[in-house]
Design a protein around this nucleic acid. Structure first.
Length: 389
DNA sequence: TTCAGACCTGT
DNA sequence: CAGGTCTGA
């Protein structure tokens, strides 16, 4: 049986990309509730499904390492290539701008350029992590505008927005209402296991692709998902899939929204059942509301019991104005720093700082001339004397 | 337009 | 109650 790859077992089955931890932190980016499909399968090794194939990712100081696994079903065939390609072709049809990193590689339409698997995988990673966006520069700008961000930024480096497959992104999002990360992860996993195409098995874990719209739209899906513990969200998922298929013509509609003007795309998504006001560049929920009040003395909705539309707008506007055009990215950093599971990072960081402080004080103390030590001693003697007397 | 209350399930 | 959304007043 195949096993999850480990970098320590040798680098021959691994490829790499130059990428520092300040530009990307896998643990934070893959664990902060953007995607629910990555698991830490080894120390610092993250395994998940992306672009129709199974990956294990890990990183060293200046390098991002990746390993992909062959799917038994598609070995030797072109099924795998076609699947991965479909993710990119969607945006190709809807406008050249949105091709992003992929642009330029396959631009010449005459001959279909034979892209080697390595090349393609590198492109998939660049696209997924949006590596051409320079996070270091953004952190600098956000820090200059926002002292609180600055205090977080040293610890929570490398938190990026993922450019996920729109279908996966949308249907995972619908699962998040009134819910928390650990439960959502379980739900999405069960969703893929029961409705997604199997890809491969590693150490007793089977990996499946995210279900297609057609699979999600089937009338049997609501009952199926209720059995899997989706609660009232089961109906939203099935109905949204049906609506996209019936009144919008299918997946290309979702793909097309990537290149649509923001407000248009947002409003289009909000017509789907289970997609409410939180679907926004700065997704405002009760949690973000708490952050706004606690860390920014933001008075929006102070008298309110719950998040009304007005409060949503006010908080969204507040952060957009503070952080600028990449406010959604900055939000991820703040959000990440507030997650319970990452609080230990703050402790270890402040412990490190304390240690550094101690060392500093010690060094200073050692450097100081003996006069002071003598003075101290004298004082001690004096005080002892006083006490005695 | 705005606002409770219901809604699945797990802790 | 939770990292919301829908519904009916």
């Amino acid at each position: 049986m195949s096993q999850h790859a480990l970098l320590s077992a040798g680098t021959k089955s691994w490829r790499s990309l130059a990428c520092s931890r300040s530009e990307l932190r896998l643990d934070l980016t893959l664990g902060c509730g953007q995607s629910f499909r990555w698991r830490e399968t080894g120390d610092g090794h993250w395994t998940g499904v992306m672009g129709g194939r199974v990956w294990t990712l890990t990183q060293t100081d200046d390098t991002l390492w990746y390993h992909t696994y062959n799917s038994p079903n598609t070995i030797g065939g072109d099924g795998r290539k076609r699947r991965a390609g479909s993710l990119l072709q969607g945006s190709k049809g809807s406008g050249k701008r949105s091709k992003g990193v992929i642009e330029g590689k396959e631009e010449e339409e005459g001959e279909p350029v034979a892209v080697t698997p390595d090349r393609k995988e590198e492109e998939l990673l660049n696209d997924y992590f949006q590596l051409k966006v320079k996070l270091g520069d953004l952190y600098r700008d956000w820090g200059a505008a926002d002292p609180h961000f600055n205090s977080i930024a040293k610890i929570f480096t490398g938190v990026r927005m993922l450019r996920q497959d729109p279908t996966e992104c949308l249907f995972s999002f619908i699962c998040t209402s009134n819910n928390h990360i650990s439960r959502i992860q379980g739900m999405v996993e069960r969703l893929c296991q029961s409705l997604g195409t199997p890809l491969c098995q590693l150490d007793q874990t089977s990996y499946h692709d995210f279900p297609s719209l057609h699979a999600l739209a089937d009338n049997s899906v609501e009952a199926c998902l209720r059995d899997l513990g989706f609660g009232y969200r089961a109906r939203f998922l099935q109905q949204s899939a049906r609506q996209i298929l019936d009144s919008h013509g299918g997946p290309h509609w979702l793909q097309g929204l990537r290149s649509a003007p923001y407000l248009q795309a947002r409003d289009a998504l909000r017509t789907l059942p289970g997609v409410g006001p939180k679907a926004c560049v700065v997704p405002v929920d009760t949690h973000v509301w708490q952050i706004a009040k606690r860390d920014y003395s933001c008075a929006a909705g102070n008298g309110q019991k719950s998040l009304t539309d007005k409060v949503h707008r006010q908080i969204g506007d507040f952060f957009r104005q503070l952080w600028g055009p990449y406010a959604g990215w900055a939000h991820s950093v703040l959000f990440c720093s507030d997650l319970k599971k990452f609080q230990k990072l703050k402790e270890t960081h402040s412990l490190k700082q304390e240690e550094e402080e101690k060392v500093k004080i010690k060094e200073e103390g050692e450097g100081i001339n003996k006069k002071i030590i003598k003075m101290c001693n004298r004082k001690v003697k004096m005080s002892v004397k006083e006490e005695v007397e």
